[in-house]
């Protein structure tokens, strides 16, 4: 091994050690503690017995209620991801194409909601969508409905609020993805006789796929791990894995069970990331 490569390796090592140490202390250790906790036995008064048992995992796996919950969580992740792509894509496309001198401001506006915490934005939706909120008052004022629609305290409200909260992330990913896109290709397709629709599906959409996939991964993971929004908007009627972890940890105080669900959610993440990487590899191979 030459002295040069060795010093290069030392540099790499030197640069990565602080980060790795940070990860070890702030992430790996707590995760190990959590894993250990998931093998303890919790009881319904919140007492924790230090032992080694798979009870908590068995409780989850052996109960169809929790399978339904895992399924609803996955559906929420998929649903919010697809809806977020549908509403964000045209905005991102417009932001890339526009030649307005306000382009910079428009991009900043599109991602500005990230400056506000999602708790605040969720409360905003509670106000807007409530029985006495702007939306229901407008609908009733226009004579379209005579009773306020139930837009919050149910699944619908959770979807509406989450899609809005996730949009800036998706727009950012799409903008980054469009960066690789050469408008000449589109012009070439049009000049060769493809109509707008065909140009979009054959040229624009496939070329934006890496951005779409990255955005989808980010939104999916953020959605299935979000608990503030489902908790505040769900009205205590809808339950997902993330809200269940919170409830078990802070309301029923069954920490071992909460830890076990956390690891099951982590497993779900792992599956999604594997799918994402396969999909990305396939697209890049094309």
């Amino acid at each position: 091994m030459s002295a040069k490569t060795r010093s290069a390796r030392l540099t790499v090592l030197g640069l990565t050690v602080p980060g790795l140490l940070g990860l070890a202390v702030s992430f790996v250790l707590p995760l190990a503690w959590l894993l250990r906790m998931s093998f303890n036995r919790g009881d319904s008064t919140g007492l924790i017995e230090e032992t080694f048992t798979l009870d908590s995992y068995a409780q989850f796996v052996g109960d169809s209620y929790y399978w339904d919950m895992a399924w609803e969580t996955t559906l929420l992740g998929l649903g919010v991801t697809v809806l977020t792509i549908v509403v964000s894509y045209p905005i991102a496309l417009f932001l890339v194409r526009t030649e307005s001198r306000f382009k910079g401001i428009l991009v900043a506006l599109a991602v500005a909601p990230l400056l506000t915490s999602s708790v605040v934005r969720t409360y905003g939706w509670l106000v807007l969508l409530g029985n006495q909120g702007v939306v229901n008052q407008a609908l009733m004022g226009a004579g379209l409905v005579d009773q306020p629609l139930a837009l919050i305290n149910n699944r619908l409200g959770v979807y509406i609020a989450l899609v809005e909260i996730m949009m800036p992330y998706m727009i950012l990913c799409l903008l980054a993805g469009f960066g690789r896109f050469n408008p000449e290709l589109e012009h070439a397709a049009r000049s060769l006789g493809a109509n707008r629709w065909r140009t979009f599906w054959r040229i624009v959409w496939p070329l934006s796929m890496p951005g779409v996939l990255t955005g989808a991964l980010l939104v999916f993971v953020l959605t299935i791990s979000s608990f503030v929004t489902p908790r505040l908007v769900g009205g205590g009627k809808v339950f997902y894995l993330a809200t269940e972890i919170y409830d078990q940890a802070t309301a029923t105080l069954n920490w071992p069970f909460a830890a076990a669900i956390a690891f099951i959610l982590l497993a779900l993440f792992a599956v999604v990331i594997v799918i994402y990487q396969r999909a990305l590899r396939r697209i890049e191979a094309q």
């Binding site: 319904s44 009627k237 029923t252 069954n254």
Partner: peptide, 18 residues
């Protein structure tokens, strides 16, 4: 009540809140 907390919570979830 504390001893039944989890049992009752599960009952509520399945029988009432759903």
């Amino acid at each position: 009540v504390a001893a039944n907390r989890e049992k009752w919570t599960q009952l509520w979830r399945r029988e009432i809140l759903a």
